[in-house]
Nucleic acid binder design. Sequence first.
DNA 1: ATGTCTGTTTAACCAAATTTAACAAGGCTT
DNA 2: AAGCCTTGTTAAATTTGGTTAAACAGACAT
Lengths: 229, 229
Amino acid sequence: MGHTKILITEDDPNLGQILSEYLTLKGFETILCPDGDQGAKRFARDKFDLCILDLMMPKKDGFTLAKEIRVKDQDTPIIFLTAKSMQEDIINGFKVGGDDYITKPFSMEELLLRIQAVLKRSHPPEEEFPTEFTLGNLKYYYTENRLEKPSGEIKLTTKENELLKIFFQNLNQTLDRSIALKKIWKDDSYFNARSMDVYIAKLRKHLKEEPNIKILTIHGEGFRMVEVQ
Amino acid sequence: MGHTKILITEDDPNLGQILSEYLTLKGFETILCPDGDQGAKRFARDKFDLCILDLMMPKKDGFTLAKEIRVKDQDTPIIFLTAKSMQEDIINGFKVGGDDYITKPFSMEELLLRIQAVLKRSHPPEEEFPTEFTLGNLKYYYTENRLEKPSGEIKLTTKENELLKIFFQNLNQTLDRSIALKKIWKDDSYFNARSMDVYIAKLRKHLKEEPNIKILTIHGEGFRMVEVQ
DNA sequence: ATGTCTGTTTAACCAAATTTAACAAGGCTT
DNA sequence: AAGCCTTGTTAAATTTGGTTAAACAGACAT
């Protein structure tokens, strides 16, 4: 239930396997990638609570990967894992935005404790501010899960509410499927995508009395909510 | 922002001096204590943003001091500093609630980076929360387990009271199930979760005469108490 | 000890929200 | 137009939460 998702990039298949199994046993969800490129791809697709990056990997080393991650995301904690123990590297690790640095060999217990120490301090993703919206003759109160229409008010379920908020925040802009999925469903998989389609239908049903507010489908891209005259 | 106050306990006067000067140079305010007892006294008197504790000190060792600190304060980050590098000690350091562990010899630069990494994640200094709240025409006195409604007052049981306090402290924000469970029930297990659901129902019953104060369910996440217009 | 009172947990059953499945419809490519 | 992929729609299955009451446990009094 805690559902803490960890990205592990480690090219040594043995160590990777052990790490992944141990952390899964401890209640984390882990995704193991064998090189930096795959790690980058995976990070772009899913939402993680923590990254454990090996430094020396084929395709793309841990520092480079960390830098790429930090361009898009300043918050997700990063722990480096490495055989090197050069002072230079440790310092470099922190400079690219890492949170901790563990040198091999290490005990699983120490790793677990360092993970917990880092997570303990990790901020929950910052929430943006506006929570009330007006559009046409709709009033929408995000914190109350409530949509007011001329015909009366509707109570929204959690998923309807999260989705509608994103639309109101991105009026007249195309909302990318995968972005919405990562924000609300935490990762974009086939089934979550279908689930989202179901919720798009629910929102359209709620909005159908307002003929000038539409959720358009951008085929292969996502959706866009617009107000038409 | 500038003012970050660090407690350093270090019995080696040379190292202590160097640490203190270096960190002062880097813009921190530092208080240096030569042993654990003085560190404890100082911590009780002042408010710090970070503690750097040597492990082997006269009067009171670093672990003992950390434990004493954690009894009163769960938030201030603690970094251990030590000549030992026994696996045992590292693990122990995290178990008593430490945030990082640096073995001597280390470079000042590494220490600085680790300090910054820990502070980056540290929660803004915990404000003392009020114990009396007003919301709509409710008055709630936490220390007295008492909720005043227009219709009269209610005595709350311990669990009702703890739960209601968390809601008042997090008005209009989603309160995560697992966070509430860990705070009140100490761990989130299936049965505790169900117990919490029972208490949510009790609170809703207490609040039902106030139709504009609601505890909303955020499915799969937690609950949110809101005042609606 | 025995009983009673009070707060809490466990259990059982029900209701709501979400996900999965299945099939239909639309759009793009050739 | 045919085939393939994406999205729409509906309903069943699954998961999560709501509600009530019974079981349990500790405090206190007899």
